[in-house]
Simulated scan of single mutants.
Amino acid sequence: MRLIFMGSPDFAVPALHALIKAGHDIVAVYTQPPRPAGRGKSLRRQPVHEAADALNIPVRTPERLRHNEEELAIFQSFNADAAIVAAYGLLLPEAILNAPRLGCLNIHASLLPRWRGASPIQSAIRAGDEKSGVCIMQMDKGLDTGAVILSEATPITPTDTAGSLHDKLAESGGRLIVRALAEHPTPRPQDDAQSCYAPRLERKDGHIDWTRPAHEIERQIRAFIPWPGSYALLDEQSYRIGAVTLVDDAEATALTAASPMPGTILDNALTIACGQGCLRIEQIQKPGRAMMARDAFLRGTTLSKGTRFV
């Protein structure tokens, strides 16, 4: 098929390669423009941009598509059979959605209608879902509301982070979009009553609320690796928390017998009181330092019993 590919981050790259390997003709790639990144804030191209250049595919990087008649004319001129969209980052106006012969197909990293929106991977882990997955969706003008063409479930393991689940779903997305184009399955409408929303995340969302149950905090920390990360404040300094383990119920009951305030350090092993239960910090990062295992961190830093994170 003659395809336009629209994607920006690492998640979209396996799908681009899978489509090429399957013999499809990618006539153009649309991706987000280069953005300032790193300490020097130099412009950095999106991973899809880099992949397309390596494949000698023409790349377009419009800042916007809405109310952009010039770009619409260019998009229409490609005479594509379909546009494949994977974490592109711009809303597609109705004229763009309708331009390809078969419309626009989206590779979405959840089992729709669960987790529509910008952070489906993080939201699934944080909510304690037992599985996630990928859907191929016929795009409409709503937010991830189109009919589902194909889906594939992936278990969420107790050790999965957003990073590890992202990589599994990215590979699944590549396989699934190739199948969708080959098999032409009948789209099935979503049940809007079963939908839930995965909001766009910001750095401030990583602030740990120690009044929450320990198992919820543990899931948040895994869900926010690698971004936005989870952190706690102590003496107005921000400590990034990289990994924790849940303390078993018997030990937690003994450690919290005196009803400490949530966020309190309970022993010399960085066990922290939560709203319910306790967590033990396994990896922690002091401001200006690298992420360290607990034992290495404590050799250079003293955090006394009774000190409280907020």
Rank of each mutant, 00 (worst) to 15 (best):
residue 76 Q to G: 03
residue 72 L to S: 08
residue 83 A to G: 07
residue 68 N to T: 08
residue 55 L to S: 14
residue 81 D to Y: 06
residue 76 Q to Y: 04
residue 67 H to N: 15
residue 55 L to R: 14
residue 73 A to G: 13
residue 64 R to Y: 12
residue 59 V to I: 13
residue 69 E to P: 07
residue 62 P to W: 00
residue 55 L to F: 08
residue 70 E to P: 04
residue 62 P to N: 10
residue 69 E to I: 06
residue 56 N to K: 13
residue 63 E to M: 13
residue 56 N to E: 14
residue 76 Q to C: 06
residue 60 R to V: 10
residue 79 N to S: 10
residue 64 R to V: 09
residue 77 S to T: 05
residue 82 A to W: 01
residue 74 I to C: 03
residue 83 A to R: 01
residue 65 L to C: 15
residue 55 L to I: 13
residue 63 E to F: 12
residue 66 R to K: 15
residue 85 V to F: 07
residue 71 E to F: 01
residue 54 A to S: 15
residue 54 A to R: 15
residue 83 A to F: 02
residue 62 P to Q: 08
residue 61 T to N: 09
residue 64 R to G: 12
residue 79 N to K: 08
residue 76 Q to P: 00
residue 75 F to L: 07
residue 62 P to I: 00
residue 59 V to Y: 04
residue 54 A to D: 13
residue 74 I to V: 11
residue 62 P to D: 01
residue 56 N to R: 13
residue 87 A to G: 11
residue 61 T to D: 10
residue 65 L to A: 12
residue 85 V to E: 01
residue 72 L to C: 04
residue 67 H to C: 11
residue 61 T to Y: 06
residue 78 F to T: 03
residue 61 T to F: 05
residue 70 E to V: 13
residue 85 V to H: 02
residue 87 A to K: 06
residue 79 N to M: 14
residue 70 E to A: 11
residue 86 A to I: 08
residue 73 A to P: 00
residue 69 E to Y: 12
residue 77 S to I: 06
residue 58 P to H: 09
residue 80 A to R: 00
residue 82 A to T: 03
residue 82 A to L: 02
residue 57 I to K: 04
residue 79 N to P: 00
residue 60 R to C: 13
residue 61 T to M: 10
residue 82 A to D: 00
residue 79 N to L: 09
residue 81 D to G: 08
residue 78 F to Y: 13
residue 76 Q to K: 09
residue 72 L to V: 02
residue 81 D to M: 07
residue 75 F to D: 02
residue 68 N to I: 04
residue 85 V to L: 09
residue 85 V to T: 04
residue 61 T to H: 12
residue 60 R to S: 11
residue 62 P to E: 01
residue 67 H to W: 07
residue 64 R to W: 03
residue 87 A to P: 05
residue 78 F to G: 01
residue 80 A to I: 01
residue 68 N to L: 11
residue 66 R to G: 10
residue 76 Q to S: 05
residue 74 I to F: 05
residue 80 A to F: 06
residue 86 A to E: 05
residue 74 I to G: 00
residue 73 A to L: 13
residue 66 R to N: 14
residue 56 N to A: 14
residue 70 E to R: 09
residue 62 P to S: 06
residue 60 R to E: 15
residue 82 A to K: 01
residue 66 R to H: 15
residue 70 E to T: 12
residue 87 A to E: 02
residue 84 I to M: 07
residue 55 L to H: 15
residue 54 A to C: 12
residue 65 L to E: 04
residue 81 D to N: 12
residue 57 I to M: 05
residue 76 Q to M: 09
residue 78 F to V: 08
residue 87 A to I: 08
residue 66 R to T: 10
residue 87 A to W: 00
residue 59 V to E: 03
residue 76 Q to H: 05
residue 64 R to L: 07
residue 70 E to L: 15
residue 69 E to K: 14
residue 77 S to N: 02
residue 61 T to W: 02
